[in-house]
């Protein structure tokens, strides 16, 4: 394998991993506040069609990312209102949100399917962004660096800030947080909105980073991968980064191995398809062996907040 090919593979892996990482970081914050939002896939699709339409109409990629985030927030507020204000079942509402997002994006996208846009270009100047070797560090669009910065930001927020501590308190013991005067519902609304914004940006990655078109259901289940990754990473941002890149590596290596021949191409595609799930099982087993880490799930995850009046 030549160094150039290695660089090319890494660039593709990073692209494939980025939307999953962004969506999962949002869901991690949501779950840390004690809320389980299974509507990630739906919010991503709303973000994807919003980004596509904005780029198609204005040609401005950054405006598209911004408005995709706003659309994700708006979609997440439907979930927030139902589960937080009305205490509806979070699992059922999240599933409904995915179905809604799928249908809404398909409706909004009618008439946009035969229209191409352009990808968001690299952030750095072309001399280093297209260099055969240096592009491994500098060849990406802003979305990739945003995802990496957000990994550190989410970790810092949860571990090192007072607001992060409050968020974790709300997720671990909502009644205690409530009794000392924190607004449990308010904190959870903010967390759900952050999750919506990140899912919207993750959706924007599809037309702006991966394939410059609109196709119905173009996220193809990656929102669910993001939800699973949060558990896989036991609610830790840096493990999430590793998990997302590992997933991207497996799905991308499958394609490179099949296209390039060589020893890896002898692996049947069924085994490649099973690898991420096998990895999940292995990680879950490892987590279970270490008893202290298995309690990392937020204690109030998925439970509606119903204070005794």
């Amino acid at each position: 394998m030549t160094p150039e090919l290695l660089v090319a593979i890494i660039v593709t892996v990073v692209g494939a991993s980025t939307p999953i990482l962004i969506a999962a970081l949002g869901e991690l914050i949501v779950e840390k506040s004690g809320v389980l939002n299974l509507g990630v896939e739906g919010m991503m699709l709303v973000g994807a069609i919003t980004a596509f339409v904005i780029v198609f109409v204005t040609g401005n990629h950054y405006l598209a990312i911004l408005l995709a985030a706003a659309a994700g927030v708006a979609t997440s507020l439907i979930f927030g209102f139902l589960t937080l204000s009305l205490s509806a079942n979070q699992t059922a509402t999240g599933l409904a949100l995915t179905i809604f997002g799928t249908g809404f994006s398909a409706l909004a996208g009618q008439g946009y399917s035969a229209r191409p846009v352009t990808l968001l270009g690299p952030l750095f100047p072309a001399e280093i962004a297209t260099h055969p070797m240096w592009r491994v560090l500098f060849g990406y669009s802003a979305l990739v660096y945003f995802a990496l910065i957000m990994v550190v930001a989410v970790w810092f927020f949860l571990k090192r800030t007072r607001a992060g501590l409050i968020l974790r308190a709300v997720g671990e013991n909502d009644l205690s947080a409530h009794s000392i005067g924190y607004s449990v519902i308010g904190v959870r609304y903010l967390a759900v909105m952050f999750g919506g914004a990140m899912a919207g940006i993750a959706g924007a990655c599809f037309p702006l980073l991966l394939t410059p078109q609109w196709a119905e259901r173009m996220t193809a289940g990656r929102g669910w991968i993001a939800v699973a990754l949060v558990v896989f990473a036991s609610w830790k941002p840096f493990r999430l980064l590793a998990g997302a890149y590992l997933f991207g590596l497996v799905v991308t290596m499958e394609l490179y191995a099949k296209a390039g021949g060589g020893p890896l191409s002898a692996i049947p595609s069924e085994l490649w398809a099973a690898l991420p799930y096998l990895a999940t099982v292995v990680v879950l087993v490892l987590i279970s062996i270490r008893r202290d880490a298995s309690t990392n799930a937020p204690a109030c995850l998925g439970k509606p907040f119903l204070p005794a009046n």
């Binding site: 090919l5 991966l210 296209a259």
Partner: peptide, 14 residues
């Protein structure tokens, strides 16, 4: 579509 695009990249890179 994203997987199709990645498959195309994998082939062109090789």
């Amino acid at each position: 579509p994203a997987k199709e695009a990645d498959a195309a990249r994998a082939m062109i890179d090789q």
